[in-house]
């Protein structure tokens, strides 16, 4: 910007509307300056894809900046993205979360994917995000979502989350066996295999937590393993757990099968020493059983 010459400058006016650059009449300068400013802005208007990319990569603040530059602020996709970004835009406050909820409620009307995602996120606010969670309210919303859009992935995922609430957080049912039974009933309503697996896994682990008979626990863990694809470290844990709990329950053949599988799949793990000791103990048990046989 080196062309600050001409009448405009000498008159000492026009800086504020860009006329300082040229000796053009102010109205022309003003129009030209606005166009110049708008051109790059228009060229850089972000698409929602870029916004979602930022949210996926934990750059919620950047996503919100991009959303502010969108032309259509009332677009449902943009509203959902804004709400999703607000969940992780520090500092997160209950007031901010209430604003996000208002956006989600606006998007949730209807039966499309956006509506299902918005409703799911609303349930998560009550389950996870507010400073004081409201588990009964979250459960109520999850049940309503499953009734309204039963085949939606988000309703199905919601059933898994409902299962967690029933297993640990809701006041009713109160006894461990009843908690497990009412959650097991959800399995029939879940059609997606990966989500069935996740609920089976949680039913197994909850059975351990609530000190239920190991045979029932193992049924769920084995079901989760049969479906396969458990994420990350949990898959290694699952094999060790099936092996060890089978060992404790006296299901020796199954214990051996899973201990050996563990050694094959995780040969460098620090747990291998214990697994080898357990295999020796299984050998001793087998030898003792053989010796005791008439």
């Amino acid at each position: 910007m080196i062309l600050a010459t001409g009448n405009t400058c000498r008159r000492g006016a026009g800086f504020h509307h860009g006329a300082v650059l040229f000796s053009f009449p102010p109205p022309f300068c003003r129009t030209a300056a606005w166009w110049l400013l708008l051109l790059p802005a228009a060229a850089a208007e972000p698409g929602l894809t870029s916004v979602w990319q930022d949210i996926a990569e934990s750059r919620s603040h950047l996503a919100l900046v991009q959303l502010d530059r969108l032309a259509d602020q009332n677009d449902r996709g943009a509203q959902l993205a804004r709400a999703a970004a607000m969940l992780d835009d520090q500092p997160v406050t209950d007031t901010g979360l209430r604003e996000a909820e208002a956006l989600l409620v606006a998007v949730a009307g209807g039966t499309d994917e956006l509506a299902a995602q918005a409703t799911y996120l609303q349930t998560r606010l009550y389950q996870m995000h507010f400073a004081q969670p409201d588990f009964p309210k979250a459960a109520e919303l999850l049940r309503a979502l499953a009734a309204r859009l039963p085949q939606s992935h988000w309703a199905q995922l919601g059933l898994v989350k409902l299962g967690l609430l029933q297993l640990y957080a809701l006041p009713e049912p109160s006894g461990p066996a009843a908690r497990l039974a009412v959650t097991e009933a959800l399995l029939a309503r879940i059609t997606e295999k990966s989500l069935q697996r996740d609920l089976h896994l949680q039913l197994g682990l909850a059975g351990v937590f609530w000190k239920q008979p190991l045979a029932g626990v193992l049924e769920h863990l084995l079901a989760a393993d049969r479906i396969g694809g458990v994420a990350g470290q949990a898959s290694e844990d699952l094999i060790a757990q099936i092996a060890e709990l089978s060992f404790r329950d006296g299901q020796d053949a199954q214990a051996r099968q899973y201990y050996e599988r563990y050694l094959r799949e995780y040969p460098t793990s620090g747990r291998c020493f214990t697994v080898r000791v357990r295999l020796q103990m299984l050998d001793e048990r087998a030898a003792a059983a053989k010796g005791a046989r008439p």
């Binding site: 959902l80 969940l87 997160v92 996870m128 992935h153």
Partner: peptide
Amino acid sequence: LLMTIRTQDGRTIAHAQL
């Protein structure tokens, strides 16, 4: 733990959108 879980809901929806 809660702090890390809370960051995941928005990201999950974002991955679904992408």
